[in-house]
Computed example of a mutant assay.
Amino acid sequence: MIHSVGGFLPPPMPAHPVPQPEPGPEQPHWNIPSISEDTAREAFALYASSKCCYSSAPAKDGVITNMEAFNTYRYRLETFAETRSTEWSHEPYHGQPVDAFSQPPPGPWDIPAKTPSFFQDDKQVIKVPYTSSVKSCHVCLGMGRKACKECAGAGNKVCWVCNGSGYRHGNDRCGHCNGRGRDNCNHCHGQGSKQCDTCHGKQQLLVYINLTVKWKNNSDSYVVEQLSGLQVDNLSKVSGKELFRDSQFMVYPILGFPDPAVVSAAQRLVNEHQNKYSQTSRILQQRQTIELIPVTKVTYLWKGKSNIYFVYGNEFKVNADNYPATCCCTVM
């Protein structure tokens, strides 16, 4: 049964111990060959043309003197989890079925919800059975109408033309209010009250408990530091070559991978996710992947000076923080 309402509701403890997945097979070492000079030059030219203040000369005329690969790994762990929360809700009563107290309501985790698509955020709101009852509207106290705030329930207001005197100049009667000194309120059409927005004039509300089911894909990643000089943050917006993918109810940290930093990150993130999300939600599926992200450091000469830029990711994205020709659009 639902004994209290409000906030997130932790899932029940599993009836049987959760089986531990078997460790995955050891992974061989992979690598991606450095990109060609033509690819590096084309990516650089495209980058320069996308910047309104960048001259295309360094990209076109610069001479590549060295290319060095700094490929790096990205480990990502995704935990797809379901959370449930309840809250009181209401709607105008117009004859809907009332089922409160006919039998005990089901527990929040006993109510069937739709089948979610793994690793895609989603939400469903379900009216909890056997919680619906009828009560007088708490906003209008069962009257169906509320005093108009604009005229304080009077139905009229001081005429804005004559300021309530009934006359405009001397003995000229105000034509706007016909000498009354007051105007009918436009908001309530002179009635002094308006239909209650909460019960829509029905005077009663159907009150019930709503269950909100949310599915969220919680993702964390770790990128192995590389010594190229390119900031790791740049790699968050690019993709790499997927080397490994493992998806199951509860993943086991990767073992035997050639880079110990990936193994350590996998162990840490798997432990963090299981401790964090199993307390407040029901874990439905986990997925871990390893990508190899290509990073190439390109050194080139332009006007006798050496400069560098980076080409990275499957998208051949370019980073050139110190582009040598950016003076074409100086703001005066």
Score class of each variant (00 low, 15 high):
25 P>S: 12
26 E>M: 07
27 Q>A: 04
28 P>A: 12
29 H>F: 14
30 W>S: 14
30 W>R: 13
30 W>M: 13
30 W>Y: 15
31 N>T: 01
33 P>L: 03
33 P>G: 10
34 S>T: 08
34 S>I: 10
34 S>Y: 03
35 I>L: 12
35 I>P: 05
35 I>E: 06
35 I>G: 06
35 I>H: 00
36 S>G: 09
37 E>Q: 15
38 D>F: 02
38 D>C: 01
38 D>V: 04
39 T>R: 09
39 T>L: 11
40 A>C: 04
41 R>L: 00
41 R>F: 02
42 E>Y: 00
43 A>S: 11
43 A>E: 06
44 F>G: 08
45 A>E: 08
45 A>H: 06
46 L>F: 05
46 L>R: 05
47 Y>G: 05
47 Y>H: 13
49 S>E: 09
49 S>M: 12
51 K>S: 03
51 K>T: 10
53 C>F: 09
54 Y>C: 14
55 S>H: 04
56 S>L: 06
57 A>N: 10
58 P>Q: 05
58 P>A: 00
59 A>W: 07
59 A>C: 07
62 G>A: 03
67 M>Q: 14
67 M>F: 05
68 E>N: 07
71 N>K: 02
72 T>W: 10
74 R>T: 06
75 Y>M: 09
75 Y>C: 07
77 L>V: 04
79 T>Q: 05
80 F>Y: 13
80 F>W: 07
81 A>S: 11
81 A>W: 00
81 A>T: 11
81 A>C: 10
83 T>A: 12
83 T>V: 09
84 R>G: 07
85 S>F: 00
87 E>P: 03
87 E>A: 15
87 E>Y: 13
88 W>F: 14
89 S>T: 15
90 H>K: 13
91 E>F: 03
91 E>P: 00
92 P>M: 06
92 P>V: 09
92 P>I: 05
93 Y>D: 07
93 Y>W: 14
95 G>D: 11
97 P>I: 03
98 V>F: 09
99 D>V: 01
101 F>Q: 13
101 F>H: 12
102 S>F: 08
102 S>C: 06
102 S>K: 15
102 S>D: 14
103 Q>M: 14
103 Q>H: 06
104 P>A: 14
105 P>Y: 04
108 P>R: 02
110 D>A: 03
110 D>R: 01
111 I>Q: 03
113 A>K: 09
113 A>Y: 08
114 K>Y: 11
115 T>D: 08
115 T>G: 05
116 P>E: 06
117 S>E: 10
119 F>A: 07
119 F>D: 05
120 Q>I: 12
121 D>W: 10
122 D>Y: 07
122 D>R: 02
123 K>M: 15
123 K>P: 00
125 V>L: 10
126 I>K: 10
126 I>S: 12
126 I>N: 12
126 I>T: 14
